[in-house]
C-alpha cells in the first residue's frame, strides 16, 4: 500500500471507521488534534486530516489530488510558499513561528470559517520526508504540521497587559492618583544621576499639611481623604513641567522633584504652592492661627557630585520643612542656610 491511497476511501474522504485495510498509524493521523497535510514532490495534497478540514471548512476531495497553491480562496502566504520550496530543495525541516509571520494558512475557528477575526494563530512545521519515503515509495513526500497557538498567544497578551497594569499601579498612590513614595525614590535616583552627568541643579520641595491630625479628628477621616485629594489636585495644577515629579511622600506629606531648577526657581514654585493652597480656602476650624488649610514647605536645590547626595537633598529639604513648621507654619523655608523667606510670611 502506498501513502497516496492509504487513509482514504475511493471518494477521497478520510476513513475514520472500518479502517481494516488502512495501516493503523495513519488512522491515528486522521484523528490527531493538530493539522496534518502531506504533499507529494510536485506540491499536490495526498493526505489531509480531520482537524485541518474542519478548520479550513472544506471537504477532503476539494484538497486531495490538487495543488496546495490552488485549493484555497485565500491562498497560503508567500512566506509559507518560499519556506516550503526551500525545504523541499534542501531536505532540511523548517518552521514558521507565530510571532514572525501572519497566519500562513487559511484556517479558522470551526464555527467562524472565513471570518478574518477568527483566523487561527499558527505555528507551522515543514518536514521533508524524502529520506524515508523516496526509498520505500515512489517519491519524496513532505509533511506540513499546523499547531493552533491562539490560546497561548491570547494568554501571553493578557499576562503582558496585566503585568503592565500592575507595574503602573505599583507607582501610583491609590488615594490621590499621583505618584507614590516608590515612584518618587526611583525618579530621585534617575534625576540625581542625570544632574551629575549634566552638572545642572536639582530642586526639591517637601510639603506638609498644617494641623492635619486635628483636621482628621474634627472632620473625620473621609473628609481628611477629600482634603488630601484637593491638595494633590492643586499641586498637579502648579507643577506643570513634563519632567517635574509630584508624589505623596507619606500621610499628609507631598514632594516635588524639580530637575534643572536652581534655588530661585524652586522658591518660586514653593511660593506659588503656598499661594494656591490659601486660595482654595478649605475650612479648618480645629487649628491655631487661622481657619483654612495651609501648607508648610521646605525647599532645597543642589548640583550633585555623587549619587549619595540624593540623601543630602532630602535632608536639606526636610530640615527646611522643619524650620517652616517651627517658625509658625503656612510658610516657605529653604536650605542650606534654612532662612525663612520673608515674602510669604
Amino acid at each position: 500500500m502506498t501513502l497516496t491511497d492509504a487513509p482514504f476511501t475511493d471518494a477521497g474522504v478520510p476513513m475514520t471507521e472500518g479502517a481494516g485495510s488502512v495501516p493503523w498509524p495513519l488512522v491515528a493521523l486522521v484523528h490527531l488534534q493538530a493539522g496534518i497535510l502531506i504533499l507529494d514532490a510536485a506540491g499536490k495534497v495526498v493526505f489531509v486530516n480531520e482537524w485541518f478540514l474542519k478548520r479550513c471548512g472544506m471537504a477532503a476531495d476539494a484538497l486531495v489530488g490538487h495543488q496546495l497553491t490552488e485549493v484555497f480562496d485565500r491562498p497560503a502566504t508567500a512566506s509559507f510558499a518560499r519556506r516550503l520550496a526551500l525545504s523541499q530543495k534542501t531536505g532540511f525541516p523548517a518552521m514558521l513561528s507565530h510571532s514572525l509571520h501572519a497566519p500562513p494558512l487559511p484556517l479558522y475557528m470551526p464555527h467562524l470559517i472565513g471570518h478574518a477575526a477568527a483566523i487561527l494563530s499558527q505555528s507551522v512545521h515543514i518536514i521533508p520526508m524524502g529520506k524515508w519515503t523516496a526509498q520505500r515509495h515512489d517519491q519524496a513526500y513532505t509533511l506540513v504540521q499546523v499547531t493552533d497557538v491562539t490560546p497561548t498567544v491570547r494568554r501571553e497578551s493578557l499576562l503582558r497587559t496585566r503585568a503592565d497594569e500592575m507595574e503602573l499601579m505599583a507607582r501610583v498612590d491609590a488615594l490621590t492618583g499621583i505618584g507614590n513614595r516608590r515612584a518618587f525614590s526611583e525618579s530621585l535616583d534617575t534625576e540625581v544621576r542625570a544632574a551629575m552627568r549634566t552638572g545642572t541643579p536639582l530642586g526639591l520641595l517637601m510639603m506638609d499639611i498644617d494641623y492635619f491630625k486635628p483636621y482628621n479628628d474634627h472632620y473625620g477621616h473621609p473628609a481628611g481623604d477629600r482634603c488630601l485629594r484637593e491638595v494633590a489636585t492643586m499641586l498637579q495644577r502648579v507643577v506643570r513641567r513634563p519632567r517635574d515629579r509630584l508624589a505623596r511622600y507619606g500621610g499628609e506629606e507631598f514632594v516635588v522633584l524639580l530637575p534643572g531648577t536652581p534655588v530661585d526657581g524652586v522658591l518660586e514654585v514653593g511660593r506659588e504652592v503656598i499661594e494656591q493652597m490659601r486660595k482654595l480656602r478649605l475650612p479648618h476650624l480645629a487649628r491655631q492661627g487661622g481657619d483654612i488649610v495651609t501648607l508648610s514647605v521646605g525647599a532645597a536645590s543642589i548640583v550633585p557630585k555623587h549619587i549619595d547626595e540624593a540623601g543630602t537633598l532630602l535632608r536639606k529639604a526636610d530640615d527646611a520643612l522643619y524650620e517652616a513648621k517651627a517658625a509658625g507654619r503656612d510658610r516657605l523655608c529653604y536650605a542650606p542656610t534654612v532662612k525663612t523667606d520673608p515674602s510669604v510670611v
Binding site: 534542501t90 518552521m95 513561528s97 507565530h98 510571532s99 514572525l100 505555528s123 497561548t152 498567544v153
Partner: peptide, 20 residues
C-alpha cells in the same frame, strides 16, 4: 515567553539551515 522562544527557534532554523 513561549511565543518569543518559538520565534527564536525559527531564526536559528533559518540561519543554521542556510549555512549547512
Amino acid at each position: 515567553a513561549e511565543m518569543e522562544q518559538e520565534a527564536l527557534s525559527e531564526i536559528g532554523n533559518i540561519l543554521l539551515n542556510s549555512v549547512m
